[in-house]
């Protein structure tokens, strides 16, 4: 099967790769571009560990073909910190012990960031339903939800 040349922008950097049309965006990020921060937990869109932003929209990168990335803007966990400065969500996740194994963490952080951009002051229930597609098996979600709410509070204060 012949491969297709794809030019796209990942975390602000122009990149190109050759993709088999059967490969998912997740495969291409991980195996073509070496961006292994996005994880595959299910390959069916049920766990959210592969969450990325595609032209700003939160998606499962396992449900996007690599060739669909042509001409798009992609944001992954690797682009979340500003250089050495962590995003408040990243800091709060460490502070609140909101990760145990850490495997679901990149996807949850990417998803939570998308939530807070849309809704800077979510309720606990809104956070829970927004993150319902991000499975975590270690924490029981308690500390994750607290970390997101605390990061939101801090970001509102900074914005004010």
């Amino acid at each position: 099967m012949s491969k297709i040349h794809v030019t796209t922008v990942v975390n602000g950097d122009a990149v190109e790769f050759l993709a088999d049309p059967r490969e998912t965006l997740l495969d291409c990020l991980r195996d073509r571009l070496g961006l292994t921060g996005s994880k595959e937990g299910c390959g069916t869109g049920d766990c959210g560990a592969c969450s990325v932003r595609l032209d700003g929209t939160l998606v499962c990168s396992c449900l996007v073909l690599g060739v669909e990335a042509e001409g798009k803007q992609i944001e992954t966990i690797e682009g979340m910190a500003d250089g050495a400065t962590l995003h408040p969500l990243q800091r709060k996740f460490i502070e609140h012990a909101a990760l145990q194994c850490g495997f679901c963490t990149p996807g949850i952080l990417v998803a939570a960031k998308a939530l807070l951009e849309r809704n800077p002051d979510p309720t606990e229930e809104e956070v829970r339903f927004w993150l319902a597609g991000n499975l975590c098996r270690c924490t029981g979600y308690d500390k994750i939800i607290r970390a997101v709410l605390d990061a939101a509070a801090e970001m509102r204060q900074e914005a004010a």
Binding site: G45, D46, G48, S51, L54, T57, L58, V59, C60, L63, V64, A111, A114, L115, W130, L131, A132, G133, N134
Partner: peptide, 9 residues
């Protein structure tokens, strides 16, 4: 239908 992520697609 599906999660927030699935809603994106």
């Amino acid at each position: 239908v599906g999660s927030t992520q699935v809603q994106g697609r």
